[in-house]
Design a binder for these strands. Structure first.
Ligand SMILES: [Mn+2]
Ligand SMILES: [Mn+2]
Ligand SMILES: [Zn+2]
Ligand SMILES: [Zn+2]
Lengths: 142, 142
DNA sequence: TATTAAAGGAGAATTATTCTTATTTGAAAA
DNA sequence: TTTTCAAATAAGAATAATTCTCCTTTAATA
């Protein structure tokens, strides 16, 4: 992803392009593995050592608010963020904090078809996210 | 659920039966809608006004540790708990904090069959939880 | 009833996040 | 280009959910 593509994302949403926003959005995209605010700050400080914690949190909120990133659900007291905006699923490792994306159109269609047929009374489905929980096998660990 | 059933759950796990544990486990079962620690304390204080916050958190941990309750994933900085231990899915309301259980064996079998066929490389699935996100319709609101 | 490891209570500490307020800055307008 | 100013950032204080520490109480066993 080029730097210009990142600033275009901000411009499209009517957000001012600032070095902080560029760095944070770039960090989430580059880090790629559902980083925490802490992970993002650590990454950014290499090139941008003076960024403020409060700015990071405010920028993250603004990016979520403007649909440039998403929050990831966890059962920990730490928020994680995701730059992949297409609706997708997650693989959760049950003995570490690793979270991987899982994109599978066949599954999406299977689910869509299922809930077209079997409606939930008084409920309008907007999104379906499967949490796939289990263990990564040690062979050839990523 | 009778009071004796609740103490039996504790005894089966080798946990000592204390009034605090009874009250907390009963609260989660009775409240039924994925309460927060705060919700639980508020409920319990009616009959048990002197329980300590620290105790509530410690008991919740012990109950999770011993598989008597589960943590519920949210994208908020507040933990929620669930007394329904069978593997099940959740309906998340996108404009409130409401979370409802969704139990559907047909869906479970569909998913199981799907992932028996389509394996994820180097990954052993232990559980599948669908997050159904959307809106409850106002008609006959619960 | 006595014993004792386990559990609870109280309040301080921690920590992720939010707030406040002064300062700076991106970008539109002149 | 310079001016303007709403919007954004920095810094540190505040907040709030949760955890910790340390002392007291108690459930279960003998
Ligand atoms: Mn918090
Ligand atoms: Mn917290
Ligand atoms: Zn993702
Ligand atoms: Zn549930």
């Amino acid at each position: 992803m080029k730097i210009e593509e990142i600033s275009n994302k901000l411009i499209e949403k009517g957000l001012r392009v600032t070095p902080q926003r560029m760095a944070i959005l770039e960090a989430i995209i580059k880090l790629n593995n559902h980083p925490t605010a802490e992970n993002i700050i650590e990454y950014i400080r290499k090139n941008h050592p003076h960024i403020s914690l409060a700015t990071v949190y405010k920028v993250l909120d603004a990016l979520v608010e403007n649909s440039l990133i998403k929050k990831v659900k966890t059962e920990k007291d730490i928020m994680r963020y995701d730059a992949l905006m297409e609706s997708h699923h997650h693989i959760y490792c049950s003995d570490s904090d690793r979270i991987e994306d899982y994109q599978d159109n066949e599954l999406n269609e299977l689910l869509k078809k299922y809930f077209d047929k079997k409606e939930i009374p008084n409920f309008k489905i907007e999104d379906l996210k499967l949490h796939i929980i289990g263990r990564f096998l040690k062979t050839g660990k990523k």
